[in-house]
């Protein structure tokens, strides 16, 4: 494609309407996890989904809005805004290069996305929160520390393990949902064509 791609191109009205839905999906995903008592977070499905079909910018804004809304009740989320935005950006870029067209590619993409979020989240967690997050994964950090690890490696190791499990599920779910979307709908989105093509094959 040779069309000029600027911010205005990415933020078409239909793409903008995806953002609130993406944020709501993040919340609802977390809500269902709670109701079903699952041992994962699954609170970035919406960010991943909007990034896949709306592009990296839309994905980033969805991530931003998610943590802004979370922050109304828990300001700690404000600190982790860059993590959600990073996920949106990287998923969007990976989607553009066709990494969400086959299940095995999605798994590789999940590892890359986990790496990204770990790299962004670890410094925030170590420098701003002394390595803690306030949820159960802190026990794992403590275990790593007790086994003689430095705080940085302890946090990094904990994060990468958690993230990989979580992101594989998140991205696979987003991938299956995009697969179910009609070509007619995908054709209206600037970044939908890559998924239409993969369907035809």
């Amino acid at each position: 494609m040779t069309t000029k791609r600027g911010l205005k191109y990415d933020f078409s009205l239909i793409a903008i309407l995806l953002i609130p839905i993406g944020v709501a999906i993040n919340f609802v995903g977390a809500q269902i996890v709670l109701l079903l008592k699952l041992p994962v977070y699954l609170d970035t499905i919406g960010t991943a989904l909007t990034a896949m079909i709306g592009g990296p910018w839309i994905g980033m804004v969805t991530g931003l809005c998610t943590n802004l809304v979370k922050g109304i009740l828990n300001p700690v989320s404000f600190a982790f805004i860059p993590v959600q935005m990073g996920v949106g950006l990287v998923v969007g870029l990976l989607a553009m290069s066709g990494m969400f067209t086959k299940a095995w590619k999605v798994i590789i993409a999940a590892v890359l996305v986990s790496l990204t979020s770990t790299i962004i989240a670890s410094p925030i967690q170590v420098l701003m929160f002394g390595g803690a997050t306030g949820n159960s994964s802190d026990a794992l950090v403590a275990t790593f520390l007790a086994s003689g690890q430095q705080i940085w490696t302890a946090v990094f190791s904990t994060k990468i393990i958690n993230e990989c499990i979580d992101k594989v599920f998140c991205l696979l779910i987003a991938f299956f949902i995009v697969k179910k979307m009609s070509p007619r709908y995908l054709s209206k989105l600037n970044y939908g064509s890559i998924f239409i093509k993969s369907k035809k094959q």
Binding site: L17, L18, I21, I25, V28, G29, K37, I173, F176, Y185
Partner: peptide
């Protein structure tokens, strides 16, 4: 419980996304 996740979430998502048009 894992198997119940997708059937709950996907109609919700597909429905609301189809409404954007």
């Amino acid at each position: 419980r894992i198997k119940a996740f997708l059937p709950t979430l996907s109609p919700l998502i597909l429905g609301s996304i189809a409404g954007t048009e």
